[in-house]
Design a protein around this nucleic acid. Structure first.
Lengths: 207, 207, 207, 207
DNA sequence: GATGAATGAGTTTTCATTCAT
DNA sequence: TATGAATGAAAACTCATTCAT
């Protein structure tokens, strides 16, 4: 009896927390962090202000949770894309597909405002960015795998060490995303990214 | 006598304004814009709050002045570098020199924190960024000139239209600068930039 | 249980709002609008500054509420007076009764300081005076009705058009109220008003 | 030598004071008292801020001086009007002429904004209004003289004591002026005043 | 007599957080 | 678990006044 009761309460609590969280995400994707006040969140979620502090230690804690979630969603997507290729596919081709997938995800799923938020946070470093840092590691890992495969297959010239090469690719994707953010909506991320990476691939291919 | 007096007062005023400005710059390079309050600035500068508003119409006006100053310092530097080359120098070579110069300026003159500030502002776009926009145009112009020259001289393959090519280069330098900001001090901007642009140049050179 | 709780909270909130409002009214009746700061209000009411902004959007909103309240109190009173007369009563008589009622209300219910406030606001016209404007319209309407009736009944000479006549009466009541405000407490509003309107009525009566 | 020098300095000082004063008057006629800051005055007058405090003890002192000046200018005007009539002229006629003159002065010389200022000040009574009070006494005196003459000549019925009658006339002129202020520019002061006083005169004339 | 740089108390408003119920 | 009233520190900005030169 007690347990059942407790269980039901927990469930209800979870639901409230999720409602709060989803509302916050929606607002974060529309407005600046500073603009999204706790007041606005609770009002939009239809709960009392005090309730917010039952589920989140602070506004900052909510933001951290938001970032973690965002990273998780993205990561899975990319991995799936990679896994869908036969093991012997041309590395350049896979890489361009991955770029294409990333562009789609940023444009479609994540949205420009969320990216702005992430970038700003990264620059502010007033907060625990471990989630995003972890995501960077993942992205780095994927690029590294692909480039390594390309070198092994003789597609790419081995002039630069793998880790340096990888870093250049990461820099490029970040530069493109940033540009997209600040030029939005006058910057076609996918087209630009594909063209950009084509140049990079041409620059490292074995002649 | 009168004029002397007036002159001395003006000088004193200028000094106070400069003190305020420099203090603000120092703080902007250390903290987030939102964190740098007028109160903190005046306290650090050792003047009264009212004094701030004699010299700056608002906090935003101060930030605008800060940006303008930053842009001015940079621009002159770059142009000088370009002008120092004989007219028939190899375009790739000039471009790499320019990149080198930019890296030096960012690293030495501007500093990582100022760049962070600029990037954050650009992402926030809650403010008049015309100064920085103007700077972007300048940078774009310089890259475009160099690439055009390279195409004319037959160094670069004319596959992509000039403006697209230029955009890729701007994206790249911005990506590198951004990476430098968030990885600081673990990212050697100059070395990475030269290596990165070497790849890009390889990617567009006429075979 | 839940509802009870909510109700009790709402009640408490209402009480605080009323406390704030009444305190403000008291201060408005003692000091100039500019002199009554939010700080003074909350201090006198014994609540925190933030609390003020829970119940009033701004200082201006509070003032608007204050005016609306004042107007509402008055209007009802006058209409009731008018309705209490049999339809065929002498217009002069009703008019003098209305004047008498107005004097009583101003003297007893509203108070001299509130009127000062209203007049000052009207002169400043830096604010939305629609509430008071509406009240003026009402007063004008009542006078117009009475005068029209008087003309129809042959009590008043029809030399002047109705709307002009009405305007003169409104001017008179306002002049009297104003005088009362600035001469307070050395001006017997009721006696003066009755005497004044007697002259006006004598001035327009059919010989 | 010394005296000459001193004299010249004094003259220059007077000139500066007058410049300051006239500038202030111009601003007071255009803007609210609160809106006219010392800064604006000295800027418009083209003198330094400190200079203001050489000639006026405070902003309030300046306002007091402004009022005194205003009253003086007006008073002389009215007296002249009165004196221009032959001693045996009809009292009603003189009174209407005086009203007409007052309307002209308010409309032409004083201006609506100045009157607003005076009325607001009168309501605020946060300041020394002795100047204006004195003016009221003058106006009262003039009305009293005229009404007394009218009663003596048998023009007006002696039902009311002289001082009460006078008060009614003062109230009326003030009510009209106030109305003009708040209805400006939709209120023809002169026409309305003449019509209004005609009614009053009709109301008190011996049948 | 004139200057104008400097002052600082005071104003309105915001918002993350607490806590009694 | 949920509420929402209450808090108060902090923000940007204003302006009458002072004083050294």
């Amino acid at each position: 009896m007690k347990n059942e009761e407790t269980g039901r309460k927990k469930q209800k609590g979870e639901k409230t927390k999720r409602k709060l969280f989803n509302t916050a995400v929606r607002l974060f994707n529309q407005y600046d962090f500073g603009e999204v006040t706790v007041d606005r969140i609770v009002e939009a979620a239809g709960v009392a202000k005090g309730t917010f502090y039952i589920y989140f230690e602070s506004k900052d804690a909510l933001i951290a949770a938001f970032l973690l979630d965002y990273v998780n969603r993205v990561d899975t997507d990319y991995r799936a894309t990679l896994d869908s290729f036969p093991p012997d596919t041309n590395a350049s081709q896979i890489l361009l597909s991955l770029i294409s997938k990333i562009a789609d995800t940023l444009t479609g799923t994540i949205g420009c405002q969320s990216m702005r938020t992430v970038y700003k946070l990264q620059l502010a470093d007033t907060m625990d960015m471990s989630a995003v840092k972890g995501y960077d590691r993942e992205l780095y890992g994927m690029f590294a795998d692909l480039l390594e495969r390309g070198i092994e297959r003789g597609e790419f010239s081995p002039i630069l060490p793998l880790n340096e090469l990888t870093r250049h690719f990461v820099v490029a994707i970040r530069g493109l995303s940033y540009e997209w953010c600040i030029r939005y909506p006058d910057f076609d991320l996918k087209a630009q990214a594909l063209s950009h990476f084509q140049i990079l691939l041409d620059g490292i291919k074995s002649n």
